[in-house]
């Protein structure tokens, strides 16, 4: 009996074969053969390019490649622009994550409270639509919309109403860039963000609301004491899952930023882009070093989030 209990099993409960590895591979050669193409594909497509990270330790200009050790990292850490970009990345990403998650929760709750199904579905469709627009189009729309020029709808409207006497340069003013950026993100991504929360809300046991009704709870009290607690687990999971991706901020910033707001808008990916693609003869070694640093920090964040996920929901994200 006790002997049987000590037998190692697979996740499906089948006993693990204790034969030598070579024998086991030979016995399952059909499966290994089927797996081989996938393995080759993954190695070539995903892992082979990773060998390029070695250039972080080289000076790589045109076809001249020279070993420089850690010099690229020293240069990177000595640059104010790098630290500005790093700091901006964390600030913008985390703030954006919190704001868009909260607005998504808020909108989900409101949608959940709507009883007119036609209005609810229509509103859902309307707020989903911006998600499917490319960032380039969104940027063009808002640049035109917020332009300081006489073609700018917002400025001209506010001036015609007498609210403004001078046009405001929304996207070129440091104090205004981030709030505008967050607003555009809310406009674009809130709708899509509600999908997962609405799914959670639809799974709340109706008996909880009935019980609340019997207890005389008002609508707001039901939201606060039933809906919100039911959502919290999902909110935390969404936050954790997205926290691992905070360094992957590029397109939305790239299409909306400009020289005058670099101090508050430049993020690591845009910094790498400029160093690589807008430099006449770039040093690919340096930009690879910055990219590698970003990847390492991203990896640490993923591990932290994995740990947090295990704590919160009992299983990791990787």
């Amino acid at each position: 009996m006790s002997k049987n209990q000590n037998v190692a099993t697979t996740s499906t409960g089948a006993p693990i074969n204790k034969k030598p590895l070579g024998t086991r591979i030979w016995n399952n050669r059909g499966y290994y053969l089927m797996f081989l193409p996938v393995l080759v594909f993954v190695i070539i497509i995903y892992y082979w390019p990773m060998l390029g990270v070695r250039y972080a330790f080289y000076e790589y200009k045109l076809r001249n490649i020279t070993w420089v050790g850690l010099k690229n990292f020293e240069t990177m850490f000595a640059k104010k622009e790098f630290w500005t970009a790093f700091s901006n990345t964390l600030q913008i990403s985390i703030t954006k994550l919190i704001i868009t998650t909260l607005t998504s929760v808020l909108v989900s709750v409101f949608l959940n409270e709507m009883h007119n199904m036609f209005a609810k579905k229509s509103l859902q469709t309307i707020i989903y639509l911006p998600h499917f627009m490319s960032w380039a189009v969104v940027a063009a729309i808002f640049q035109l919309f917020l332009s300081k020029s006489s073609t700018g709808f917002v400025n001209e409207t506010l001036k015609s109403w007498g609210i403004l006497s001078q046009s405001i340069d929304f996207l070129h003013t440091q104090s205004m860039w981030r709030p505008i950026f967050y607003l555009i993100n809310i406009w674009k991504e809130t709708g899509w963000g509600t999908v997962i929360f609405l799914a959670t809300l639809s799974g709340i046991n109706p008996e909880l609301y009935e019980a609340a009704d019997i207890d005389g709870a008002s609508r707001l009290q039901k939201i606060w004491y039933v809906t919100v607690p039911a959502l919290m687990n999902t909110v935390i999971i969404v936050l954790i899952l997205n926290l691992a991706k905070v360094l992957n901020l590029f397109e939305s910033v790239f299409v909306l930023y400009n020289n005058r707001v670099f101090d508050v808008s430049d993020v690591i990916s845009t910094y790498i882009y400029r160093q690589t693609f807008l430099t006449a003869i770039p040093d690919y070694g340096y930009t690879t070093a910055v990219g590698l640093f970003k990847s390492i920090v991203g990896c640490v964040l993923v591990l932290v989030c994995n740990y947090a996920s295990k704590k919160v929901r009992g299983r990791g994200i990787i």
Partner: peptide, 18 residues
């Protein structure tokens, strides 16, 4: 059949990668 299929798949993939 499985072995033949896997062999064919492998060959196709290796050929395409090549």
């Amino acid at each position: 059949k499985k072995k033949v299929l896997s062999l064919l798949l492998s060959t196709a993939m290796v050929a395409s990668l090549a």
